[in-house]
Computed example of a mutant assay.
Amino acid sequence: MTSSIPRYAVIGNPVKHSRSPWIHARFAEQTGIALEYTRLEAPLDGFAQSVEHFIAQGGRGLNVTVPFKEQAYALAQDRLSARARQAQAVNTLIVRDDEIHGCNTDGVGLVADIAQSGFGLAGKRLLIIGAGGAAKGIIGPLLLAGCQAIHIINRTQSRAETLCAQFTDTAAPGQQLSAGGMSDAGTGWDAVINASASSLQGVPPELPAGCYAPGALAYDLMYSAQATPFLEQAARQGAAHCVDGLGMLVGQAAESFLLWHGVRPDVAPVLAELRQAIRQQG
């Protein structure tokens, strides 16, 4: 027997650390929408089956985290948003009329958080470190925000080049997209975004002196109670603004909430409460 309350979940492996249930519970309280939101850890070889079972039990939507964003893209391949098609990765599944639709809200959450920090992206030169799933979801919205140039670097240069080619048709006239290895970082960037796993590994990426232009932004997609290794390095190298990815996490969740319920929640109080809770735990 399925519950009459709409069911949602975050699906991944591992997923027990996810803060999504807490975030969506706060959004539900804020908007007065009744829902049930849980964590769903799928076997590495059983993503599609786990999604099908969840829907059969009354599931209406899923946030998708590592390592399943590409599998979610394949699952919803006939019903994808423009952002999901660009990214070739899905972080939000929506069930409508027994059909699975896919979207990617990561980049929208990032751009919104950067705007909230007071940094303008239009006309800026960006360096992106990493060419995996995290980078896939942000490049399209960053281009749409009007960045002048985006340079992608990765330990395996061919992956950066492949990702760059994926978005060539997305760039507007005058926008520059390029790629290289870690030794091709260059200098004088208006913003440097760390989309690699370096902060999880506890070691910052190797970046040259002069990487940051005056007034530059350093943004790490990861977050923690203390500054990440990347942000510590950025501060030493002269970045004027150092921001972690907690605001992006809450922002992309708000976009998912909008897709599911037709209401965009207020991110600011939820982010402030979550930030305080993380500091107390840390």
Rank of each mutant, 00 (worst) to 15 (best):
A9T: 05
A9Q: 01
V10Q: 00
V15G: 01
K16V: 12
R19Y: 10
H24F: 10
F27D: 04
G32D: 13
L35A: 07
E36G: 09
Y37Q: 02
T38S: 14
E41T: 09
L44Y: 11
D45L: 06
Q49H: 09
V51E: 02
A56T: 07
Q57P: 00
N63H: 13
T65N: 11
K69N: 06
E70T: 13
A72I: 13
L75Y: 11
A76E: 09
R79V: 08
R83G: 01
A87Q: 05
V90L: 14
T92Q: 03
L93E: 08
V95H: 01
H101C: 06
G102S: 11
N104M: 08
N104Y: 13
G109V: 03
I114H: 02
I114C: 00
I114Q: 00
G123S: 10
G132L: 09
A135G: 09
K136R: 14
G140P: 00
P141T: 01
L142C: 09
L142V: 03
G146W: 15
G146I: 09
Q148K: 14
Q148H: 11
I153R: 00
Q157G: 01
F167K: 01
T168L: 13
A171I: 07
A172G: 05
Q175D: 10
S178P: 13
G180K: 04
S183M: 05
D184G: 04
D184A: 15
A185I: 10
A185S: 09
G188H: 06
A191G: 10
A191H: 02
G202W: 05
G202S: 07
A209C: 10
Y212Q: 05
G215D: 13
A216T: 05
A218G: 05
D220T: 03
L221I: 15
M222S: 14
Y223Q: 04
L231G: 04
E232R: 12
Q233M: 11
A235D: 05
G238H: 06
G238V: 12
A240F: 11
A240W: 09
C242Q: 03
G245M: 04
L246R: 06
G247C: 01
L249D: 02
E255N: 08
S256P: 02
F257S: 02
G262V: 15
R279V: 12
Q280D: 13
Q281L: 06
G282E: 08
